[in-house]
Design a binder for these strands. Sequence first.
DNA 1: GCCAACGTTGGC
DNA 2: GCCAACGTTGGC
Length: 150
Amino acid sequence: MSYWLMKSEPDEFSIDDLAKRRTEPWSGVRNYQARNYMRDGMRVGDGVFFYHSSCAEPAIVGIAEVSRAAYPDPTQFDPRSDYFDAGSNREEPRWLMVEVRFKRKLKRNITLAELKERRELRDLILLRPGSRLSVSPVSKAHWDFILSLE
DNA sequence: GCCAACGTTGGC
DNA sequence: GCCAACGTTGGC
């Protein structure tokens, strides 16, 4: 079992939205590294930290799990979608997505500021300078440590 | 293959 | 809204 962190802007899709929907196709990832993590790494049942980005208080706010492994993201084929990619095609889809299922909200939000204070987390990909990956791996040690902060 | 220009991300 | 960091694009 592996662990991951996925970013979402709460104005677009928040942990409360996921709680209501129960499961959500994670469409719109248009970064090759993030796609490769989904394709090569993410398996059904993997743990996911749900992170709120681009907001007043960036933080890990909840836990989800992978409920479906990578499959082609249909929005790449839809000319009306913001995520349309004219360079992709159905025979060889360029972009993939996974589906995630809500597990629970954290008892309290663990803020980016707090994560940065913890020496134990200095290698967390989220905290690497300039890291903008919307999907990134989390080691079991980091996963367990972050949960211990809850 | 290089690299400048451009667009995006995301914290602040 | 600013801007640093990064990825992508496209001319050469």
